[in-house]
């Protein structure tokens, strides 16, 4: 067990203390994503940044991952669509991640196909320096769809679902970089859902936005949850209470507590979670 910190509390201790009184409340059948004893390393297994994480993420709900910086929540999110493959020395050292029952690190899984089903929205909105239309159509075009009417339809539908259509419908061919920050992030969401994924991962989607733009994205998340399973990493605990159904609290690479959001914030079973959500540390 690696304990690297000078933090006041030992994460391993907290985790073992919580394991007993934290029954996994999601039945296996209802879960979209099963994280089963996963450890993950960025340096070929020398040090694990995720340590034996197990929890199930339900379908059609919003699950928030919270915790202080460096606790591994973004790393876990990036494991779910194998974006960590981009780091040459990264490695899942133990356990399995199953999405819709399939181990996504199995040798016969194509990460390209996985990512079509598991979309991702990034912390810093990153539209391509192309037109609004081309941004939304990007994912479909790389899948080889060239039919103009099909693309038009998909672009309109995605922009509507991302609550951006009314604002941009008259300037689809102007550059995406002319939009405001909040609009650019909604455009990125539209781009992600245009390829019809089953799951949408969001890595602190509002951290670069002002409160009004943040509120619009949060409304959007609430609407999208009917169609997609959403996993959101956030630093903002109010945001977690506002948008998520379930919350997982991470600390130093370990899952400390995972439960209904209401329970986590009102009545956490681990002292450490309470300290964090009430703002005493972190």
């Amino acid at each position: 067990m690696v304990t690297t910190s000078s933090q006041p509390t030992d994460a391993a201790e907290i985790a073992s203390a919580s394991a007993a009184n934290n029954p996994n409340p999601i039945a296996k059948e209802d879960s979209m994503i099963e994280v089963d004893d996963v450890s993950f390393s960025y340096d070929m297994g020398k040090t694990n940044v995720l340590k034996n994480i197990s929890f199930n993420i339900p379908a059609g709900k919003v699950t928030a991952l919270i915790g202080p910086s460096g606790c591994g929540k973004s790393t876990l999110l990036r494991c779910l669509n194998r974006m960590n493959d981009l780091v040459d020395t990264s490695k899942v050292t133990t356990g399995q991640i199953r999405i819709m029952g399939q181990d996504i690190n199995a040798s016969d899984v194509d990460p390209i196909e996985l990512r079509k089903q598991v979309g991702m929205v990034f912390q810093k909105y990153n539209p391509f320096p192309k037109s609004i239309y081309d941004n939304v159509a990007y994912g479909l075009r790389i899948q080889g769809i060239k039919n103009k009417s099909k693309l038009n339809e998909a672009v309109e539908k995605s922009l509507q679902r991302a609550a951006l259509w009314s604002e941009v419908k008259d300037r689809l061919n102007s550059s995406a970089l002319g939009l405001s920050g909040g609009q650019q992030q909604r455009l990125c969401i539209a781009r992600t859902i245009a390829v019809n994924p089953r799951i949408v991962l969001m890595d602190e989607p509002c951290s670069a936005l002002d409160p009004i733009a943040t509120a619009r994205i949060e409304e959007l998340i609430a609407e999208l949850q009917e169609e997609f399973t959403i996993v959101i990493v956030t630093h903002n605990m109010q945001q977690a209470t506002r948008v998520s159904d379930r919350t997982a609290f991470f600390y130093l690479g370990e899952l400390i507590e995972y439960n209904d959001t209401a329970t986590i914030f009102a009545n956490p079973s681990v002292r450490h979670t309470e300290d964090y959500v009430s703002g005493r540390f972190g």
């Binding site: 974006m83 390209i112 990512r115 991702m120 990034f122 990153n126 391509f128 994912g139 790389i142």
Partner: peptide, 17 residues
């Protein structure tokens, strides 16, 4: 920017795409 590559790959692009 790294964001362009990540956005593209996250949408299911192959490396060459």
């Amino acid at each position: 920017p790294k964001g362009f590559r990540e956005a593209s790959l996250a949408l299911g692009a192959t490396k060459w795409q």
